[in-house]
Each structure stands twice: as structure tokens, then as C-alpha cells.
């Protein structure tokens, strides 16, 4: 018996070992270093001059105009992307779930942009949004003046946000379609017996049944929008006048271009806290729902 236990320990560590070594080097140590560096003025080009500065970086950050701008830009991205992508995906899924023909075509058609990479979509839409591009030509034919889109400080952020919605909406649509198909048809049959209207069926059956999925989708879309960097990097370089400069872009440039590891780590910690809060909210909201389900079942049983 003892021997078996010992051999299990050896075998377990042998199997888990390679992953553990890599996890330590590339996840645990970087996480600890990020936290430690966030309290220092570590500048990678003169590492010997590093001091421990306590919470100074955190205080500085909330007075740093560029950081605040990158933070509010990120919030703006979330505020545009979340309703458009979340509700858009739900709407598409509800419509596609209803039609009897071409269902497969619709699923593929709205999923196509998901397949394309961020860099490809950004490169394509740079052409679409260009001053003499196809979108302005179409608008011109409709009698609308040419718009500067990504070349103006006021339009660049919404333009990139809408492009991002275009690219992502098909993914959440597929998730919602999966959820709709999982709803027990007996619920609708019972409602039909009671002569419920379509709106009542939607309000009293579809929406409550989809609620946990909605929470999941809305939080993942929010986190996704929070992590925005590649699109502005490729399309605008964060401009014009930092109007599309996001939090992650700021971390990236401060750390890997300016080599200011200390302050970049502070930004990364602030960013990580936001993302983790969102993740925790999601798990609380969805777990709550499951518990209720279990309680109900327990009572009924």
C-alpha cells in the first residue's frame, strides 16, 4: 500500500512536472514579478537604478492624463460594443431560430467575419473606411457627405467599435442559437394551449431560459472589448490624438517600447483587477441562478 502511494506521487509529478515547470516560469513568476515591479520605478535600460517606491506608481497613474484617456477610451469601446454585439447577437439568433429555410446559410453568413483574424479585418476595414473608399462611395450615392471615419478624433473610436461588433457578433449568435435549441419545446406547447401571444412566450419562456447565457455572453463581450488593442494598433496607431488609445495598448507601449517596466506593471495590475472583477461577477451571477434551479428541483422532488 505504501509502495503504491509512493509510486503515485512519483508518477503524478512526472506527468504534471513539465506543465508545472512551464507554468512556474511563464505564469507564476511573471504574475509575481508584475506585482513586485508595480511598486518600483524599474526602467529596463538602467535596471541598477531601481527603487522601491511603494504605492507611488498607483497614485501617479490616476493623475496621468494619457492613462486616464486610455481608460476612458476603453470604457467607451465597451459601452458601444456591449449593447450592439450582445443585443445584435441575440436578435440574430432569435430570427434565425425562427426561419424554416436557409438556416444553415444564415448561420455561416453571419459567422464569416469571426473566422478572419483581427489583423485581416483591420486591414480590410482600413480600405473600406478610407476617404475615397467603398463606404464613402456608397454614402455618396445615398446623398451623404464623405466621412473621415478612422482619420478623425471624433469618429475613429466608434468606427473601430462598430467594425469590432461586425467581426464578433456571429460568435455570440452561435452561442445564443445553442441556448435557444436547448429550451424544452414542451414549455412552448404548454404556452400555446393557454393561447399565449408571441411576446408573452418570449418574455415568460425564452428570456428567463436564456438569462444565464445572457450573463455569460454580456460579460465575455465586455472582457473582450476591455482587451482591445490589435485593431487600433493596425488601423490608427492609437490616434488621431490618442482617441483610440486603449488600456492594453498603453501597457504594451509603456512596457515594450519605452521599457518603463515599473509603471507598465502598475497599469497591468489595474487592468487585471478590472478583468478579474468582471469574471467574479459573472461566476456569482451564473452560480446564483444554478443554485436556485437546484433548490427548486429539491423542493419539487
Amino acid at each position: 500500500m505504501m509502495k503504491k502511494k509512493k509510486s503515485n506521487t512519483i508518477m503524478g509529478m512526472a506527468f504534471f512536472g513539465p506543465a508545472l515547470v512551464l507554468l512556474t516560469i511563464f505564469l507564476f513568476i511573471p504574475m509575481i514579478l508584475t506585482l513586485v515591479f508595480s511598486f518600483t520605478d524599474y526602467f529596463a535600460l538602467s535596471p541598477n537604478l531601481t527603487h522601491f517606491v511603494g504605492f507611488e506608481n498607483y497614485g501617479k497613474l490616476f493623475k496621468d492624463e494619457l492613462f486616464l484617456q486610455s481608460f476612458f477610451n476603453t470604457v467607451k469601446f465597451v459601452l458601444i460594443i456591449l449593447p450592439c454585439q450582445g443585443l445584435g447577437a441575440l436578435g440574430l439568433a432569435l430570427l434565425i431560430n425562427k426561419v424554416t429555410h436557409c438556416k444553415k446559410y444564415f448561420k455561416v453568413a453571419f459567422f464569416v467575419p469571426v473566422v478572419m483574424s483581427l489583423a485581416v479585418v483591420s486591414t480590410l476595414w482600413m480600405q473600406i473606411y478610407s476617404p475615397e473608399g467603398i463606404l464613402n462611395t456608397i454614402l455618396g450615392n445615398l446623398g451623404i457627405n464623405a466621412q473621415p471615419f478612422i482619420h478623425s478624433a471624433s469618429q475613429a473610436l466608434p468606427s473601430i467599435a462598430l467594425m469590432s461588433v461586425w467581426q464578433g457578433v456571429g460568435y455570440q449568435m452561435i452561442i445564443f442559437l445553442g441556448g435557444l435549441q436547448a429550451i424544452n419545446p414542451a414549455l412552448y406547447e404548454a404556452a400555446e394551449m393557454d393561447h399565449a401571444s408571441s411576446w408573452q412566450k418570449f418574455k415568460d419562456i425564452t428570456l428567463p431560459e436564456l438569462k444565464p447565457l445572457c450573463v455569460f455572453v454580456f460579460i465575455t463581450v465586455t472582457i473582450g472589448a476591455f482587451r482591445m488593442i490589435v485593431q487600433p494598433m493596425v488601423m490608427t496607431g492609437g490616434g488621431p490624438s490618442h482617441s483610440t488609445y486603449t488600456m492594453v495598448y498603453n501597457i504594451y507601449e509603456t512596457g515594450t517600447v519605452n521599457w518603463e517596466i515599473g509603471i507598465a506593471s502598475t497599469m497591468a495590475i489595474v487592468f487585471a483587477i478590472f478583468v478579474m472583477i468582471l469574471t467574479v461577477i459573472q461566476s456569482i451571477l451564473t452560480r446564483d441562478k444554478e443554485d436556485k434551479h437546484v433548490n427548486k428541483k429539491a423542493k419539487n422532488g
Binding site: 514579478l33 512596457g255 497591468a268 495590475i269
Partner: peptide, 8 residues
Amino acid sequence: PMETILTI
């Protein structure tokens, strides 16, 4: 989020 440790 992986972006946090990208710099490191």
C-alpha cells in the same frame, strides 16, 4: 488576462 504578463 494574458495581456497582464505580456511585458514580463
